[in-house]
Design a protein around this nucleic acid. Sequence first.
DNA 1: ACCTGTCATACCCGGTAGGTATCACCGCAT
DNA 2: ATGCGGTGATACCTACCGGGTATGACAGGT
Lengths: 287, 287
Amino acid sequence: MDALEIRELRYFTAVAEELHFGRAAERLGMAQPPLSRAIQHLERRLGVSLLERDRRGVSLTGAGEVLLYEGRAALDAATAAARRTRRAGGADGQGGSRNRLVLAVKAAASHELLQKLLDAYAAEPGAAEIEVLPSGMCEQEEMLRDGRADVALMHAPFNSLAGFDSEELTTEGQIAVLPAGHPLAARETLSMDDVRDLPDLPLARWPRHGTYPPGPGPEVRDQTQLAQLIALGRTMAVFPDSARSWLWAGHAAVPLTDAPPVVTSIAWPAHSRSLALAGLVRTATRL
Amino acid sequence: MDALEIRELRYFTAVAEELHFGRAAERLGMAQPPLSRAIQHLERRLGVSLLERDRRGVSLTGAGEVLLYEGRAALDAATAAARRTRRAGGADGQGGSRNRLVLAVKAAASHELLQKLLDAYAAEPGAAEIEVLPSGMCEQEEMLRDGRADVALMHAPFNSLAGFDSEELTTEGQIAVLPAGHPLAARETLSMDDVRDLPDLPLARWPRHGTYPPGPGPEVRDQTQLAQLIALGRTMAVFPDSARSWLWAGHAAVPLTDAPPVVTSIAWPAHSRSLALAGLVRTATRL
DNA sequence: ACCTGTCATACCCGGTAGGTATCACCGCAT
DNA sequence: ATGCGGTGATACCTACCGGGTATGACAGGT
């Protein structure tokens, strides 16, 4: 019962994701035959069939799905180990950067909270250096898992806190961000039913984990694009209250009475034991 | 920036735990020179010094400590991936055992709760087969992490729920289990101060993660040994209320007014997506 | 000084990961 | 039907590297 090797997991996940040995081999920078052999070898060692080689392509068996899922976790853990070790040893350029934290935040969210947090923490005695790592819309989980970040500001229910330790920081309502001239912009409040499925204002779509959800609305990549499209009267969006800070002149914000509240939390890998991290969390909860 | 290999992590953790290349090599079933080389190679690839080779033995650098910690997580993740995949493929003997959960429970704890849970769950339509895996005193976390178990009954504050999803099931007080003839056994209630550091009844010590904590009390391995020693008047112990079910005639139980309450939870790896697991958790919370 | 215990170095060998060439198999077009 | 393109599997070879043995370097204790 010898353990899986990381290399084998890399190979398997490549094949499982591509469902095609040739493309997977290309992605891995190797030839196809050794890849086929490696997967066969893996299946023999596990005593389990992972892939269904049908003439019409490759598909995952049940065990293969399990391995894809669990293997990704193992891969993340291994790359996180490497990254954090390199950083702890100061192999990232300047030497000995022990006292440093990487904080992942959504690019345009929680501006004021972040500012207050950084200011307050910098005033602490012995504060570590905080590197702010801007992340995409829901990339923070991945960043924490694979070691690119040590700690993150996450927003339930958009981010999932599963597998992390966290402390709640703030809770806020949500607003509908509409074109200033739109009839609904004059209302005092709105409900989700009012803004869902408006034919003239379809909800914009963000990429989640690399792909766009289906829907009628325009696809946007960042918040500036979205802001422009709203100002042009092409779409609308639902955002936490704090988004008011970046609204344009052509925008109108109307509170939503029944939108789920957005909880901003500070989250970190459950097993972290860093002193600097503990200090940052303490500062954050005192704000 | 090629990834660490599991083999390298195994080697490094062995050395980091033994702090001795020879013993580590023996534990790994290999000779010492290749082990030394492997560690050097690892240090060169990470660009970081992990071990301080001092004349008088080996010690961990800061980066080494980080790698030991993170590496263990990666090792656990990899072995969990292998184990769960094998099980999903039915490679553990009988074929295709997809619908099966391994539940880790402390050997002699929560007897009645466990009984009720298993009965209730078995009555559910489409219930999976539950394999009950008895665990040591605080071994459940490890079992969940490395895939030996899918779900566990854990007892805060003895087990740490960090890194797992969980649902609280019951809360109970604690009792002092004393020899029946002891003067304190006649009391209606006791406080922690009453029973801490009694010269005639030192608290027994359980092994935690393989080693015994220091102290004057006798070292016990299982709950039967402890019961015997208590009946003999040599020691005492503090247990949750539910421990009354296994008390002997020579024991006396006195409620402790200020002991921390014991919370029994059902816990599982945060990323689990198994249908059977969801059903078991639902059953448990409805008890 | 000697011996002992430690980790590092030198050198050799065999397994295996990876490459190239090719096969076996099917769907599909002509 | 029959070749063609595209798939994954097989055969075979090479080179690297992981592992073993023997030995060195170096410090402490006697």
